[in-house]
Design a protein around this nucleic acid. Structure first.
Lengths: 338, 338
DNA sequence: CTGAAAGCGCTTACAG
DNA sequence: CTGAAAGCGCTTACAG
């Protein structure tokens, strides 16, 4: 391993001077700088971030909080996967590297962050088995951004879920539906999305005074089995339903399964709208919302870099989801709400 | 930030003694150790890996080579996603953290690895735009493992692709097919899978003297459009085909699309076998192979830890893929090869 | 424009 | 069983 001392010795300059030349800092004569740079190249010098971090406290490391526990999708998530990919691109282009934070060996996310001297943290999907606590990050004023859940004191870049819910209801209303159910993913304090989407949905229905509580059904988890069960409960209670809006596509897949087993045709007998636009959704022809992953990641990385630069950032930024029209919604003729 | 010097001062011992107590090294009296440990806890001491790495050259960092360029799936890949998830679990349980390696700022993967003082590297999916060169890793004898492509000098844990190809052909033969096409993903020197699967396939057909070159069709990339085009070329040339084995499910999806557009029914008119078992495959009823991602990741992490421990590891380990029977293969009656 | 000194937080021989 | 010394590779004031 070649160090700045090797370059210092080879050129006759001191280590600090070599350091300045390498970093383009201080006032050096052009000649000196060039000599040092040439020698560095000749010797195949490679900087050592570890040593630099020890003195500067800057690691150029961004911690990623991503825990699959309870989700069981690995990195194949319709929102998380593209957000992580794009965020990584942007953050690496700015000279930072991504490292996964964990909670092994009695460490908390925060102690792990300190252990690694990270410069910032992105919360994509925290573990849900034990409540994640981010207060330490906030107290320490570590640059931080969240891309899926709203946490007080953490700049959150997230889909305009309420608007999505409203648009879903409006879309169904426009297609002539009046009896519209809502199947919700768990409301667990981790993801705020199910409640937000429901709020928008409810607001739209209340506008026309057609909302009532028996339209709402809650799932125990985010998987399709859970969606099938919930829809079963819902349809038994409300046989008059012509449409259902589901928090996310996985649950909607469960509705498809239940429908298939029970001879309910989609969209002839039942219209469905989901959320997420998973890969399989295209194959099913499911009308659903696609979250603006590129926009979310771009803004999140910018918010991160801004905080690192000492700038203040807004507490929350909403990105509009896009309705992907396919063929799971039927138009009911002879009926017009608007 | 609390350092060992703070603990030393608070307890009256020296820094080296504190270090020994904290790390459980050297011969310390139980009393000393306990006093130091108690004080460390009381002060809220957290170790700093940066300083330790500088002296020990051990970072407890494993570099991940994962580049989406040209693949365009982000982290949502049927093989890579679960392998990365499981590998991460295992490696973190052993006290290591995962960091992504990139090639930004004129860095090579290797110089980035040195920059970060990583202890090992896992190659999941290297960038394909510029040929990745791993010779430096090998020369430096850095612990290394590859989970998708075979590189000389790098311990590779990979699916028994040839066996998969053989089994696919055998399965189709057993179901009465004799005219079986093969649609291959690009043979580009990065992924060895397409060629390996083809080899197995070819071996099986040659055994019964029914292989000929016009059964083979090569795709320009791994996407479904490419698969549709390739199948178009193939079926025009060989109208007698009753089945086709496709390197991977994405390409097989293209076959489905082409078939749908051209009134070819699956499996009535055409039997199809894919590889990967993507999520959408289940919805299509595609018979395909599932790679043993858990096994691959478990072995890969073990190989990594073994190398870190100075043990030697085998150059290559093959994991058997599992055939997932669904309904894309028809049995041709009245014909028996075996 | 350049260098001597000191320090970042930790560990490793070497003594005793 | 414990400590004084030195070093890992780099950067930051402080001088001149």
């Amino acid at each position: 391993m070649i160090t700045i001392y090797d370059i210092a010795e080879a050129t006759g300059y001191s280590a600090p001077t070599v350091s300045r030349a390498l970093n383009g800092l201080g006032s050096l004569s052009e000649e000196t700088r060039q000599k040092i740079l040439d020698k560095a190249k000749e010797l195949g010098y490679e900087p050592n971030i570890t040593a630099r971090t020890l003195t500067t406290k800057k690691s150029y490391l961004i911690g990623v909080i991503y825990d699959d526990t309870g989700m069981n999708m690995g990195f194949s998530h319709p929102l998380f996967s593209p957000v992580l990919t794009r965020f990584r691109e942007k953050i690496e282009a700015a000279g930072y590297d991504l490292i996964f934070l964990s909670r092994h060996f009695n460490m908390t996310y925060f102690s792990h962050a300190n252990f690694r001297c990270i410069d910032g943290v992105i919360i994509i999907n925290p573990a849900t088995n034990t409540p994640a606590d981010f207060s330490d990050f906030i107290k320490a004023n570590l640059p931080r951004v969240s891309t899926n859940s709203v946490f007080d004191g953490i700049c959150t870049v997230i889909t305009a879920n309420e608007q999505g819910g409203y648009e879903a209801a409006e879309y169904l209303l426009k297609h002539g539906h009046k009896k519209i159910g809502y199947i919700s993913a768990p409301v667990d304090g981790i993801s705020t999305a199910p409640a937000e989407r429901f709020n928008g949905f409810r607001t739209a229905l209340e506008k026309y005074h057609i909302f009532d509580d028996s339209l709402y059904e809650l799932c125990s988890d985010w998987g399709k089995e859970s969606g099938a069960e919930a829809f079963g409960r819902l349809i038994k209670r409300r046989k008059d339903l012509t449409a259902v809006f589901v928090t996310n596509d996985q649950l909607a897949f469960g509705v498809y399964e239940y429908a298939k087993k029970n001879g309910i045709r989609i969209p002839e007998d039942l219209s469905v709208i989901g959320f997420d636009d998973e890969i399989a959704s295209e194959y099913l022809g499911l009308t659903t919302f696609r979250q603006s992953t590129t926009e979310i990641a771009d803004i999140a990385s910018q918010m991160m870099l801004d905080q690192i630069d000492g700038k203040s950032v807004p507490p929350i930024i909403r990105c509009r989801p896009e309705l992907i029209e396919r063929k799971s919604v039927k138009t009911i003729k002879g009926f017009r709400l608007f």
